[in-house]
């Protein structure tokens, strides 16, 4: 097929440059579309992944507690870490608050288990009132910019992750614990040599 214009046929160089321009345009359009699809696929993959599961490496985080203490997960290697996500507005969290504190007091003298509370999307006065109400003494701090909860991809509160001495998620509980023994059973199994 010949390339024609109102002024007659195009010169071969003009035809070639027109073709090159069209090809570049197509390449750009397809490239852009592919990049967009890749981003969408990554986003979908991430949203479909669900929470961090057993056997996976627990994402590292650093938390500034309400008392101003800095805690990072990596510094607790060699210990069992019980990571509990909660909020003062969360009614099911209240069900397990006393049992978690009792478990912390049970293991605290041994020094092999650390409990950490991550306060998810909360206001500080209400969070402090909650800690006082349930006499919670293990370290607790706010999840600033929801970075920790996003790293663990939590689905809500309460959620509790049991991280072993090697930094791997050994067990997790979605929803509240209703018995003290349910908590100690998991931790005791993790402390077995």
């Amino acid at each position: 097929m010949s390339d024609l214009t109102e002024n007659g046929p195009l010169q071969p160089t003009e035809v070639e440059s027109k073709k090159t321009g069209r090809r570049t345009g197509h390449l750009l359009a397809w490239g852009g579309l592919m990049i967009l699809l890749a981003i969408l696929a990554l986003g979908l993959d991430r949203s479909q992944k669900g929470p961090v599961s057993e056997g996976q490496r627990a994402p590292n985080f650093s938390l500034t507690t309400f008392d101003g203490e800095e805690i990072s997960l990596s510094s607790l290697r060699g210990k069992v870490v019980v990571l509990n996500f909660w909020a003062s507005w969360c009614k099911p969290c209240e069900q397990e608050a006393a049992d978690l504190e009792a478990a912390w007091r049970y293991y605290q003298p041994g020094g092999q288990v650390v409990f950490i509370g991550v306060d998810y999307i909360d206001t500080k006065p209400e969070a402090l009132a909650y800690l006082e109400k349930f006499d919670i003494t293990y370290p607790n701090g706010p999840d600033l910019r929801t970075q920790i909860s996003q790293a663990y991809r939590i689905t809500g509160v309460p959620e509790t992750y049991f991280i072993d001495q090697n930094g791997l998620v050994n067990n997790k509980k979605i929803g509240p614990f209703t018995r003290f023994e349910d908590i100690t059973r998991i931790i005791d199994a993790m402390l077995q040599p």
Binding site: I121, P142, L144, R145, T146, Q147, Q150
Partner: peptide
């Protein structure tokens, strides 16, 4: 609010 809860 952004610092506490993120861009959301």
């Amino acid at each position: 609010f952004v610092d506490q809860y993120g861009d959301r």
